[in-house]
């Protein structure tokens, strides 16, 4: 089947569909990681610059931290991903004890939009830019990190990656991936920063298991 757009391009460039493709120019050497401790500190420093919050949390502290979050953010409804880490930490049970109503992660979007809190787990962490990398699947819906007004992402030190190169090499075959660097923001009105324009207004990241 002929494609007029491709034909026009080839005519302009003087190429045919059999013209060889030369090698793409070589790429810069990726950033070298520092120690795990320094990488974690760098990540949280960058996250803070982006108006995100969080820090290192011991597994034993999770219940108390969640109780504080539920109180300060007035969390009534929450929805969460089903990942081994989230299950292991018993997040669901803690939230129930705190009196938070749990909305199934695959509920209709109108219902998810009413959630105050969405809990996910980052697949990778990029310290240099304060970035969380999330995938999606049936147990890890895309809307959990998007619709609730507060987003809490859990992660562990083994999710740290030094640079985009490693994240892309590992993650490029997922059908969906999103980088999140801070809460949703805009400066469209008189260049004044406003948070939470469409996505979450608050972003919390807890690094579990490295103190």
């Amino acid at each position: 089947m002929t494609n007029p757009v491709l034909e026009n391009i080839r005519r302009s460039l003087g190429r045919t569909d059999r013209s060889p493709v030369g090698l793409r120019p070589a790429i810069y050497v990726p950033r070298q990681p520092k120690t795990v401790d320094a990488e974690i500190s760098l990540f949280f420093a960058e996250l803070e610059k982006l108006a995100g919050t969080g820090g290192r949390v011991a597994a034993a502290e999770i219940a108390a931290k969640l109780a504080a979050l539920v109180e300060t953010q007035e969390i009534r409804k929450a929805t969460l991903w089903h990942t081994p880490l989230i299950e292991k930490l018993g997040i669901e049970k803690i939230l129930r004890t705190l009196g938070v109503e749990l909305i199934p992660e695959n509920a209709p979007k109108a219902e998810l939009a009413l959630c105050d809190l969405g809990i996910t787990e980052a697949d990778y962490i990029l310290p240099e830019t304060g970035t969380l990398v999330l995938h999606a699947s049936a147990d890890m819906p895309r809307a959990t990190s998007l619709l609730p007004r507060v987003h809490l992402a859990l992660t562990t030190p083994d999710m740290l990656r030094p640079d985009l190169h490693q994240v892309f090499a590992e993650g490029k075959h997922n059908n969906y991936m999103v980088f999140i660097s801070g809460p949703s923001r805009t400066a469209d009105i008189e260049l004044t920063t406003a948070l939470g324009v469409h996505g979450p207004k608050d972003l919390h990241v807890w690094m579990v298991g490295y103190l």
């Binding site: 049936a138 895309r142 993650g171």
Partner: peptide
């Protein structure tokens, strides 16, 4: 002047399951 924009999405085709969304 940001190091990275707030959201960067990488989308390859439609959703794989209804529960995933998209």
């Amino acid at each position: 002047g940001q190091k990275m924009s707030t959201y960067t999405q990488f989308i390859t085709g439609p959703r794989r399951s209804d529960d995933e969304g998209g």
